[in-house]
């Protein structure tokens, strides 16, 4: 229960940080001592990157399925 709660707390801090972000959020992370924003950005980049790869893979397999259907006809 405590871990769940702290996870929730972490989420809310992240959201709060995101809301506080001034235009120069990188400057803030540079001088602020929290620096959790960098971790959030890094994880976001990785998820976006893997997601982009998955999307292209999806397109590739859709193409294969189309070929397959045309062949069967």
């Amino acid at each position: 229960m405590r871990t769940l709660l702290s996870f929730f707390l972490l989420l809310t801090t992240v959201v709060a940080n995101a809301q506080n972000a001034a235009p120069s959020w990188l400057e803030n992370t540079l001088y602020g001592n929290g620096k959790i924003n960098v971790v959030v950005a890094v994880i976001a980049v990785i998820i976006l990157g893997i997601g982009f790869w998955l999307w292209r893979m999806d397109r590739r397999i859709s193409g294969l399925e189309k070929d397959q259907r045309q062949k069967q006809r």
Binding site: L26, L30, K35, N37, V42, V45, I46, G49
Partner: peptide
């Protein structure tokens, strides 16, 4: 190369926040 690109981008973000 996908992982190379991810490593470069994440590294650049971390470097900006750590080394400026």
């Amino acid at each position: 190369l996908v992982f190379c690109v991810l490593g470069l981008i994440t590294g650049a973000l971390w470097a900006r926040a750590t080394w400026g």
